[in-house]
Nucleic acid binder design. Structure first.
Length: 294
DNA sequence: TGCCAGGCTTCAC
DNA sequence: GTGAAGCATGGC
């Protein structure tokens, strides 16, 4: 079934390159860049394309609302963009450049595993490993482009032995994924409960599991639980905070771990409840300037 | 070759 | 509680 929707502040290419989603695949590269994407989430598959604000959505009848929710159509990104501090030139420019980025509503379990994979990996490599897990343990889906694979459920992934995971070249992350899958399959990691938690509660809960630290927990909160106040600090954000927002007078005696919290509070605290969207703009902008988008 | 990638755990202090 | 070492693998 094909649907057409008008959605402001949506740019599929920017979203696909924003590092929040690893299962959005460009199917055709035209002269103006990729124009059509295959997207897989929660066992469903859709093809998406766009011309301006016009989104074309190709998916099974009945999945339309699911995908509109996935694209976070209920959130007013125009309002968020307009709220970027006029005196913060870096953020203004970042928001302008990435104005088509939205925070997708993705599956928490998939975010847990993909962001555990993400540690010390490049984005193309995270994509490849996520694809490997899916094709090896996920459910097959018949799509217009052939057989594709859903991301494996906790039960499915818990069938994978540590040796099998190691053979995929997951490195030291294999043992994290193995234990997390056992935990989730056996209910020690309670995904239903997780979805009902607020931001802080979810952070504390997630960081209690082997292989999940503060940065990964924040990514899970932001991309899997839609706690858009979450502000993950990775090496890129670290670089930005130090170059654009660091003040030696204020922070010279503050320990590093506390310093980032202080800088974020000072410069992004005003975006109460949605600082994570601003985080995505600056992350995308920095990578754009470094020519790292792919 | 050396350094870095959407970091985390472990271990000294 | 803070900071450094060690960790797997691949690309530049």
């Amino acid at each position: 079934m094909k649907y057409t929707e008008m959605i402001p502040n949506l740019n599929l290419e920017q979203i696909a390159q924003s590092g929040q989603c690893f299962r959005m695949t460009p199917l055709f590269k035209g002269p103006g860049g990729p124009v059509r994407y295959q997207v897989i989430s929660r066992g469903r598959l859709a093809l998406m394309g766009q011309e301006g604000q016009r989104l074309s959505l190709e998916c099974p009848r009945g999945d339309r609302d699911f995908w509109l929710g996935y694209l976070d159509c209920g959130t007013d990104y125009g309002k968020i963009l307009a709220s970027a501090d006029p005196e913060d030139a870096y953020l203004r420019e970042a928001a302008r450049l990435g104005s088509g980025i939205r925070i997708l509503r993705q599956d928490p379990w998939e975010m847990i595993i993909t962001f555990v994979i993400s540690q010390q990996k490049t984005i193309p490599h995270i994509r490849a490993l996520t694809e490997s897990l899916s094709s090896r343990w996920g459910q097959a889906i018949q799509g217009p482009e052939g057989i594709q694979y859903a991301f494996p459920t906790p039960i499915q992934l818990s069938q994978a032995s540590l040796e099998q995971l190691l053979s995929l070249k997951l490195g030291y992350r294999a043992k994290y994924i193995h234990r997390l899958s056992q935990d989730a399959a056996q209910g020690r990691l309670d995904l239903k409960a997780l979805e009902g938690m607020g931001y802080q509660e979810a952070m504390d809960y997630l960081m209690g599991f082997y292989g999940i630290g503060k940065k990964v927990a924040n990514c899970i909160c932001l991309f899997g639980l839609h706690h858009i106040e979450a502000f993950p600090v990775d090496t890129w954000i670290e670089k930005i905070l130090m170059r654009e927002y660091y003040d030696e007078e204020k922070y010279k005696d503050v320990p590093k771990t506390r310093m980032y919290e202080r800088i974020i509070q000072e410069h992004f605290g005003q975006y109460e409840g949605y600082a994570g969207v601003m985080q995505q703009y600056i992350f995308y902008y920095e990578r754009f300037k470094s020519n790292k988008l792919a």
